[in-house]
C-alpha cells in the first residue's frame, strides 16, 4: 500500500484564488533491502552507484558489489554515524538508528 502525503497549497505566491487547497500525491513504493533488522537501508532503485558511501564509511560496514552498488558487508560494524546519509547525493541510503 503506497504511503500518501498530503500537500498543502494555500501559500501560492501570485494568484491565491488559483491554488487548490489540498492535493494528495502517492509516494512510490521504494524497494528496500527487505531486511528491517539491517542497520543500513539502501534504496536500490534510487542508487546511482557512485561509491561515495562506501568510500567514506569510517568503519568499513559497507561493501561494493561487482556492479558498483553498495551492500551491508558487516552489519555489526555500523555505529549509526550517518555519514552515508549525509553524503549520499541520491537520498538512497539511510544509516539512522530508527528507520
Amino acid at each position: 500500500m503506497p504511503k500518501k502525503v498530503e500537500k498543502d497549497r494555500i501559500g501560492m505566491i501570485i494568484r491565491e484564488e488559483d491554488a487548490p487547497e489540498k492535493m494528495e500525491v502517492e509516494l512510490p513504493e521504494i524497494k528496500e533491502t527487505g531486511d528491517k533488522s539491517s542497520p543500513v537501508i539502501i534504496y536500490y532503485n534510487w542508487c546511482k552507484k557512485c561509491g561515495i558511501c562506501v568510500a567514506f564509511c569510517p568503519t568499513g560496514c559497507l561493501g561494493r558489489k561487482a556492479d558498483g552498488s553498495p551492500y551491508v558487508l558487516a552489519p555489526e560494524k555500523c555505529t549509526h554515524c550517518e555519514m552515508c546519509d549525509l553524503l549520499c547525493p541520491d537520498f538512497a541510503i539511510s544509516g539512522a538508528k530508527e528507520h
Partner: peptide
C-alpha cells in the same frame, strides 16, 4: 533522518533525479 528528507521531495517528479552519479 533520510525519511524526513523524502517527505520534502516531490515524488510526482521523476526520481532518481537528473544529476550524474556522484
Amino acid at each position: 533522518p533520510q525519511k524526513i528528507i523524502h517527505e520534502y521531495l516531490r515524488h510526482d517528479k521523476k526520481f532518481p533525479h537528473v544529476w550524474c552519479a556522484g
